[in-house]
Amino acid sequence: MLTSLRTQAAAAACALAVAVTAPSAQAADWEPHKPIEMVIMAGQGGGADRLARFFQSLIQKHDLTNMPVLPVNKGGGSGAEALRYMKDNAGDAHKVMATLNSYYTTPLRQDIGVDIETFTPIARMAVDTFVLWVNADSDIHTLDEFVTAVKEADGSWKMGGTGTGQEDSLVTAMLEQEFGIKFTYVPFDGGGTVAKNLVGGHIDSTVNNPSEQLPFFRAGKSRPIATFTEARLEPLPDVPTMTELGHDLTYGMQRSFVGAPGMPADAQQYYIDLFTKVSESEEWQEYAASEALDTKLLTGDALQEYFLKERATHAKILGIN
């Protein structure tokens, strides 16, 4: 057991040594003087966690910081735990939080005493998109056929998702409103499980992210019907967008970084520079392209404006004023 501790200590020491000796290439005046905590609004192993750790490993691989970045999962209460934690550490310049859409939906749905307007916006790294999928064995090829089939099923059409209040349930609700149809929404643990259940024939359709269904699509097991985006997706060039089909249905899931309320301005600038470099890295751009992520970078005030707009949109979808 001692050996294990020693090994870990040695590994940590190595990581530190690498980080310390790396030439500093930062332009900002402020530099971290202790390890940076990367708070993740979700539990270990999920999509949000994987992406946050991917960013952490990119920072480490390219020696972008003089201090190590330590990922910490605080996924309790749909991210409420992480939001409270950041609020309780107001002014701390060594904590950044990786967000998903629960960044605005959780404070809207439960009163946890957090106003995201007070948080420090850093960078929006990506927006994940949504696509309507059916099993490849199904007769449905177009959106019209899909709507007709759902209507005929008279409420028994099984739409899989990851739980009420999650992003895909909002997309499902948007579909119901737009077409006057009714689904039976079946919640599962995560997007991967939803994808598997569609391919296994246990549900009739999903609104999975492209990354979750692309492997099955390439294996000829699932079929995309339409995308909830403004422009067509690169890995799915033949799939029409909802906008093209005459329906104003777009929805995205942002992956961003924010700081605690009251983070000093020069620290904010440091992190903006840091994540801009991560965003420009070849690995990230390659990964994003393969997963059909929109990598348009938003930082600082522009990001805050985007957050507030998204919050208002979500309040409307959730029916909260």
Binding site: R50, R53, F54, L214, P215, F216, R218, E283, Y287
Partner: peptide, 13 residues
């Protein structure tokens, strides 16, 4: 997550 990081795409292919 690691496999994705190394540029491998797990799945049927």
């Amino acid at each position: 997550g690691g496999m994705v990081m190394w540029g491998l795409m797990p799945g049927p292919m």
